[in-house]
Amino acid sequence: MRVLKVGPADATKVLVLIPGRGEAAGGLRLDAEQLARSVPGLQVWAIDRREQALADLSGFEGTAQQATDYYLGGHEATQTAASAGYEADWGLATELNDVRRVVLAAQDHGRRSVVLGGHSLGAAAVLYYAAWDFDGTPGYRDLSGLMVIDGGVRGALAGAGIDFSLTADQATAWRAQIAQGQVFDNATSVYTGFGDQPQAAAVWYQLAATWAAQDPHGPSALADKVPAGFRPTQPVTNAGLLGWMLDQHAPLPGYSVHSGHLSATGDWVDAGPTPLQRVAESMAAGDPAAWEWYSPNRLALDYFAGSAYSDNAVARSQGLRLQHVAEVDLPLYAFESNLTNGTVDAAASALTADTRIPRVDAQTDDSMTHLDILFADPAHNTFTRTAATFLDSLR
Score class of each variant (00 low, 15 high):
R2Y: 06
K5Y: 04
T12K: 08
L17E: 07
R21L: 09
E23R: 12
A25D: 04
G26E: 02
L35Q: 13
Q43M: 13
W45Q: 13
W45Y: 12
I47G: 06
R50E: 04
R50Q: 04
S58V: 15
F60D: 00
G62H: 08
Y70T: 00
Y70F: 13
L72P: 09
G73W: 05
E76Y: 07
T78D: 03
A84P: 05
G85A: 01
N97V: 03
N97Y: 12
D98Y: 01
A105H: 08
G110K: 03
G110W: 02
R112N: 07
V114A: 11
V114T: 08
V114Q: 09
S120M: 09
A123C: 09
Y128L: 02
Y129R: 10
A131G: 03
W132A: 01
G136L: 02
G136M: 02
T137W: 02
P138E: 11
G139D: 09
L146N: 06
I149L: 14
S165I: 02
L166R: 05
T167P: 11
D169I: 07
A171S: 14
A176I: 01
Q180Y: 04
N186Y: 07
N186Q: 11
N186S: 15
V190E: 14
P198R: 06
A200C: 07
A202R: 06
W204Q: 12
Y205V: 14
Q206K: 15
A208R: 08
A208F: 03
T210G: 10
W211F: 15
W211Q: 14
A212M: 13
D215A: 15
A223Y: 00
D224F: 01
G229C: 12
P232K: 08
T233M: 11
L241Y: 04
W244F: 15
A250E: 09
A250H: 08
A250C: 12
A250T: 13
L252P: 03
G254C: 04
Y255Q: 14
V257W: 12
S259H: 05
G260K: 06
H261F: 07
L262Y: 05
L262S: 06
S263R: 11
D267Y: 01
D267V: 00
V269Y: 00
G272Q: 01
R278I: 10
V279W: 01
E281Y: 09
M283W: 10
A285V: 01
A285H: 10
G286Y: 06
D287I: 01
A290F: 11
E292D: 14
W293K: 05
P296T: 13
R298F: 12
R298D: 03
R298N: 08
A300I: 00
A305G: 15
A308H: 01
A315D: 03
R316T: 14
Q323C: 05
Q323W: 00
V328H: 05
L332M: 10
Y333F: 15
A334Y: 07
E336M: 00
S337D: 10
N338E: 05
T340W: 07
T343N: 10
V344R: 01
A350L: 06
L351Q: 08
T352W: 00
R359F: 11
S367L: 11
M368A: 15
T369N: 13
D372R: 05
L374N: 09
D377I: 07
D377G: 06
T384D: 06
T384K: 08
R385G: 02
L391Q: 13
